[in-house]
Simulated scan of single mutants.
Amino acid sequence: MEIYPAVDILDGRCVQLVQGRPEAATVYGDPAAWARRWLEEGADGLHVVNLDGAFGRAQKNADLIRAFTRETDAFVELGGGIRSVEDAAGWLEVDVDRVILSTLAVRSPDVIRTLADEFGSVRVMAGIDARGGEVMIEGWERPAGGYLSWAERFEDLGAGSLLYTNVDVEGLQQGIAITPVTDLLARARVPVVVSGGISSSGDVHALREAGAAGAVLGSALYAGKVRLSEAMEAAHAAE
Rank of each mutant, 00 (worst) to 15 (best):
I128T: 10
G127D: 10
V106G: 10
E155I: 07
A62V: 15
A105C: 08
L184I: 09
Q174Y: 01
G127C: 07
G145L: 02
P109I: 02
V94F: 04
R189Q: 11
A88K: 04
G158T: 07
S108V: 11
I112H: 09
I100V: 15
G145I: 08
D183W: 01
H47T: 00
L185Q: 08
W140F: 03
A62G: 00
F55W: 15
F75R: 06
D95P: 00
E152Q: 14
F119L: 08
L92P: 01
L64T: 12
V135I: 12
R113N: 14
A186N: 14
L104V: 01
D97A: 11
Q174F: 02
A67I: 05
A159P: 10
I137H: 03
G175Y: 07
A105W: 10
L184T: 11
R153S: 13
K60G: 09
V122A: 15
Y147W: 09
R189Y: 13
N61H: 12
E134W: 05
L78F: 11
E152R: 14
I82E: 03
A89C: 03
Y147E: 05
R113S: 15
D63K: 14
R131K: 15
V96N: 11
Q173F: 02
Q173L: 12
Y164A: 00
E141N: 15
V122M: 12
E155V: 12
R153N: 11
E134R: 13
L148R: 14
R70L: 12
K60N: 15
G160V: 02
A67S: 13
R131V: 01
D117M: 06
D97I: 12
A159S: 14
T179H: 13
V96R: 08
V169I: 02
R113Y: 10
T103L: 06
G132H: 09
A105T: 06
D87C: 03
D110Y: 13
S102M: 03
V49N: 05
L101E: 14
